[in-house]
């Protein structure tokens, strides 16, 4: 039995510290010997979720900790992000960016999360925010694998 590849990193929720965690995630993903792992999708979603915590969960003068965990399972990456900041309230649905008027310079974050992640679930528990999500393996490759079995 191989141990499922997994990564856990914590940092202070600032954009600079989040970048360090994402670079550690890059190293982890570059070393995976699993060609159907949805590495780029995880890079994109982890960036959006962690930077969202850095931007909104804490007052800028008192950024607190954020923890990121992921494990690679047959269905994809199972991920959890936790922080001790203010409650998120209702999770944004991430509407399709409106490109009909003046071009938006923001509002793409939750849209990307919902495009690439499945089972996005937020809960407030014991003064912590917890966001769980799955980054599924690439559909074509799952189809290809099931054909062979």
């Amino acid at each position: 039995m191989h141990r499922a590849p997994q990564l856990e990193r914590s940092c202070t929720a600032t954009f600079e510290e989040v970048r360090r965690v994402l670079i550690a995630l890059d190293r982890f993903l570059d070393n995976l010997e699993d060609s159907t792992a949805p590495a780029d999708d995880l890079r994109i979603v982890a960036g959006e979720v962690l930077n969202n915590v850095a931007e909104h969960a804490y007052d800028s003068c008192a950024a607190g900790p954020v923890r990121f965990r992921c494990i690679l399972r047959p269905k994809g990456f199972l991920c959890r992000v936790e922080d001790q900041g203010r409650a998120l309230g209702d999770m944004p649905e991430g509407e399709t960016p409106d490109l009909s008027g003046p071009l938006p310079e923001g509002g793409f974050g939750w849209f990307l999360i919902h495009q690439l992640a499945q089972g996005v679930h937020y809960r407030r528990r014991g003064g912590r925010n917890q966001l769980n999500f799955t980054i599924p393996r690439i559909a074509a490759e799952i189809t290809g694998a099931s054909k062979g079995s």
Binding site: G47, L103, P104, E105, F108, L112
Partner: peptide, 14 residues
């Protein structure tokens, strides 16, 4: 790597 903030900055640059 580009995230949504980076994308917004590229749009803003245009």
């Amino acid at each position: 790597f580009v995230d949504s903030s980076g994308l917004g900055a590229i749009v803003g640059s245009m």
